[in-house]
Design a protein around this nucleic acid. Structure first.
Lengths: 330, 330
DNA sequence: GCCGCGAATGTAAGCGGTTACATTCATGCC
DNA sequence: GGCATGAATGTAACCGCTTACATTCGCGGC
């Protein structure tokens, strides 16, 4: 039980060092003039007593927690872990802490988190590609600073050029001679998925679409369904890498070779994309960078700001183009 | 700047509702007797004013933050994201928040975190397979509750049966007829790595060891070195999955087939292990379960407790045994 | 020796809640 | 009607720190 510790407070240090609490505080925070000798004595006493300032007491006093909150749709998968990594790295550099929370795509849980932020975090980063999400901001304390990831809202957000990425990929496939390009869609309500779909539709010669939900299973299912078509596509473009992996397994299980029989492409460029066989051609999303920028935006003063991160085509082997083979070994 | 919000406090609600702050508090926390009508009025006022209790103020008062800290060696890779997921799920169930921090294997950063926990988290989960880590506990406020992951300390810890897992894998390889089994080691100071190595040494007919550090690159390098041996091993057992992936790529790049020419095995069973080609035979570590238990232990009263999680052999295709093929599709 | 003044330090009022204790209120009973 | 009694509510101290403001100290200049 967290009771045994927590005993030594600033008062104890003050008493022991023979000064007032104000002086302790001044020394610890490097504010106000303190005589060199006094300062040394205070520091020694702190060490002797193993004193550490009490986090929430300090936060209450200075009205800042130096913590930012991160709300994710789910903690599954590499995409999210990369985002966390990007944010954490930046937060640490700035002396901030990170409070993470995965809500299982549940509206109520999301609201619960929104109601718990006051006095707990200085700012909130919400990643919820669900289009409805921005509406839920109403449940935040009025005026609470927030930044939206992969979603657009009224105040500050940062998103990905999904449309451009999809467009570039379809162009690449067409350049390789493909005309029957299938697309595996993401979840209906997902903003990223919608943009990727739009990019595909606007660029592909014909629309061959399969439902999906960003999971490997969905990719697998789509792969199986696809193979039963009389006129199979010659290329498959999955709305994210995880689904592309699913397709890959479905094809492998059915003895269909990638890229020889069917070309396969994904979206995101999660770390694993390099390690599957064949390495996956995909659209690279600068995930860690997304996190980094999100953090910077979260602690910035700007009331209003919309950023868009560009994507890049990463050509590996799953589409049969080995001319520009990239990143087999990291 | 986080300044615009944060205006409405419990006092405002009290004034507006025509009651004292104590009553507000009682209603919100469901303590003490409150007349039905009063309660309703308070709740309505809270909603009207969009009042939310101030986190740190509350924490300071009740001397509990309902937050637990998680300190990880690095936020890289699937292993850690799985751990976070396991802990988060359990924390949410118990109404706790999760403060994560990745320290880049830097001693100083770790100490810095240790000094920042007082009054910020109720308990700390530290995952640091580095053997030295438990010594660093001295930098924690005296008596601060902590649980060690994959490391043994004086108070509470939970670790993995690395020895047994390695042993089982080597036995499996021997049963398949292998006698020249190479092992790719983890980092020197890593406790998990040391136990896995010990399991290998105690079971393998001969020791063919390569240095490694749990990274894909290290696996790749070991793979290349291995191929230049005059008498190559017939099976390779990497101390973790990431290194096994590296080996897989090295072999593929050199035209060596797995498992036909060389059998390959890993350790951890991270999600990706199922998706590489061929699917990786490995030792399953119940990662999310590890997180779950760690959390439970963190908030428990037990002063002293050591848990060990069992591992299981997961036979896929990378060792040529297709008899018990498992989990191709999740 | 006294005064003025900046440097060093101390005092105490918050920060926004919780809660022990005090107070008020509504009943029921004599 | 007076009073004991428990329910409902209010008062104010406290959690551990920061900081505005007050106080004291040390010292140079007259």
């Amino acid at each position: 039980m967290p009771d045994s510790h927590d005993r030594v407070t600033i008062k104890d240090v003050a008493a022991q060092a023979g000064v007032s609490v104000a002086t302790i505080s001044r020394v610890l925070n490097g504010k106000g003039p303190v005589r060199e000798a006094t300062s040394r004595r205070v520091i020694e006493t702190c060490q002797a007593l193993r004193f550490t300032p009490h986090g929430v007491a300090r936060s209450l006093s200075i009205r800042r927690t130096h913590t930012i909150g991160l709300l994710l749709p789910d903690l599954h998968g590499e995409f999210f872990s990369e985002v966390i990594r990007g944010i954490d790295a930046e937060a640490r550099r700035s002396g901030y802490h990170l409070l993470v929370s995965g809500f299982h795509s549940d509206r109520q849980e999301m609201i619960a988190v929104f109601r718990a932020v006051r006095g707990r975090v200085d700012s909130l980063i919400v990643m919820s590609p669900d289009r409805e999400a921005s509406a839920l901001c109403a449940y935040l304390p009025a005026g609470f600073p927030i930044v939206l990831l992969n979603n657009t809202g009224v105040s500050r957000d940062i998103s990905i050029d999904n449309y451009g990425g999809a467009e570039a990929m379809v162009r690449h496939l067409r350049a390789l001679g493909h005309t029957r390009i299938a697309f595996i869609k993401g979840p209906d309500q997902n903003a990223d998925a919608a943009e990727r779909l739009r990019g595909y539709r606007d660029t592909s010669p014909q629309a061959i679409e399969f439902d999906g939900n960003f999971s490997e299973e969905a990719g697998y299912d789509a792969g199986i369904r696809m193979l039963s078509m009389t006129q199979k596509p010659t290329a498959v473009f999955a709305a994210n890498d995880a689904m592309a992996f699913g397709v890959m397994i479905a094809l492998r299980d059915s003895g269909v070779r990638v890229p020889h029989d069917i070309a396969l492409a994904g979206f995101d460029d999660i770390p694993t994309a390099r390690y599957v066989t064949p390495p996956l051609t995909t659209v690279k999303v600068p995930i860690a960078e997304l996190g980094r920028r999100a953090f910077d935006l979260a602690i910035s003063d700007e009331e209003q700001r919309h950023e868009v991160l560009q994507t890049t085509l990463v050509i590996r082997e799953s589409c049969g183009s080995t001319i520009l083979r990239g990143g087999t070994k990291s």
